[in-house]
Design a protein around this nucleic acid. Sequence first.
RNA 1: GGCCCCGUCGUCCAGCGGUCAGGACACCGGCCUUUCAAGCCGGGAACACGGGUUCGAGUCCCGUCGGGGUCACCA
Length: 503
Amino acid sequence: MPDRPVRVRIAPSPTGDPHVGTAYQALFNSAFARRHGGAFVLRIEDTDRARSTPESERAILSSLRWLGLSWDEGPDVGGPHAPYRQSERLPIYREHVERLLAAGHAYRCFCSRERLERMREENRANKEFPGYDRLCRGLDPAEAARRAAAGEPHVVRMKVPTEGHAVMHDLLRGEIRRDWASIDDQVILKTDGFPTYHLANVVDDHLMEISHVIRGEEWINSLPKHVRLYEMFGWQPPVFCHLPLLRNADRTRSKLSKRRNPTSIEYYRRAGFLPEALLNFLGLMGWSPPDGEEKFSFDEMVRSFELERVSLGGPVFDVEKLRWLNGRYIREDHDAARLVDRLAEWALNRETFERIAPLAQPRLQTLSDWGYLTAFFFADDVPFDAEQVAIRGLDREATLELLQIASLRLDARRTWNADELDADFRRLAEATGLKLRDLTKPFYLVLTGRSAATPLFQSMEILGPDLCRVRLRRALERLGPVSAKKRKQAERRMVEIFGEPAP
RNA sequence: GGCCCCGUCGUCCAGCGGUCAGGACACCGGCCUUUCAAGCCGGGAACACGGGUUCGAGUCCCGUCGGGGUCACCA
């Protein structure tokens, strides 16, 4: 361990819903920092211009805060190494790329995407190494600089050794070796002038004086490139520690994915999980305190946290056990009054009731009708009769495809309100020649558990995207697992009907 | 497929050369009880396999098998 102050970070990419995996990484980094009296930094890695959104960044920050996590430096709290958003650090990366270029550690590459694609395809077909063939590495740098100055589009690639092997160290895994011949010259600066992860990550970790890089196992394979970048810059690399990936509970045991499990932190919030329970549960993934007690607060975790105690097997995210733990928190940490407070914080409050009231009012004959009518707003899953899921005039398969298309569309939405949902469903009805009321029927069933409920789109708005998406996915799963082929088909149809760019 | 990582009950963890392989979730049975939960008691359930090293391997080494990750101008 280098004798410098402990500084760690998480570097989420704001390209989607706040993921429990991000919370997991944040928890372990934060606990490690606190344990060693160090600093925990949050840095936004928004170098993917096409997919990064401010809404996603906001959502990630607020979800992490909901969990009780906090950071010493970050885009919202500032800090000595600001800015903490990579899109605001472009000149820094440019300057560092120049340095590598000048030192001959990197070169400009003018190869077209088409050429690269062709090359990859051929190599794969011939079972040869599929990486970049280094065509532009041989270009005269002066000539390349002239072409670039003339405005010819290009990327910058780092030079990687062509022989020998990289030797790396991981805090938990020890030495890792990898032949350089299996690694190609990675792009570090894209055509649009943005850096890639590899470059931005290394530059920022260095400038922000990160001492330990604690991140997901998925990064092990790019470690050689990172280590090489540190070498080329002449910097001391941080200690690397790769944590196991959270896994799906199904047979695949692949890394946790929303296709198979709810992954959005917001889902767990809406479904009534307590933040302290979710955080505690995440702390049980790959780690356990020496005393074996499974219920512990973040502060308690910090007190006994040892990174060395992390076990390497990929932990399955078992919602059943999370539910049990959540129940313990409800039972053991709350008296009735406190529980009522928590319920109000969650959803049972005047604000929610006021949103629902206009929808419920026309449908109430007595005040007591309220309970049954609105119960689905305050539930996680809703039971429904699968037999009834049908669209008039369509067979089961066609019905399922529509549910699938809608599900994909709803997944792609970045904003969520009744008017837009209304427009989406109208469009889908139009494209399929269905009456809106026939189309929405199965959605009432799977989203509200009833064939008649408060109006669908307004109800969906109140329900929120996370609950709606999960209910739809569960319904699809239950009604007949969709084959990969069918999903592809539905995906194409969705794009046909709604167009490529998500709103 | 190449490369990399990993491998203890169905699941999450403990074990860090000598334990009857322990705890928790889930499951099953019992007790308690106006129901259901909760709680308490009990039960079944694992060291992937094969070689080594060692007086002695779940623990160390090698191989096989299995799982995962990764092979982008995404992170």
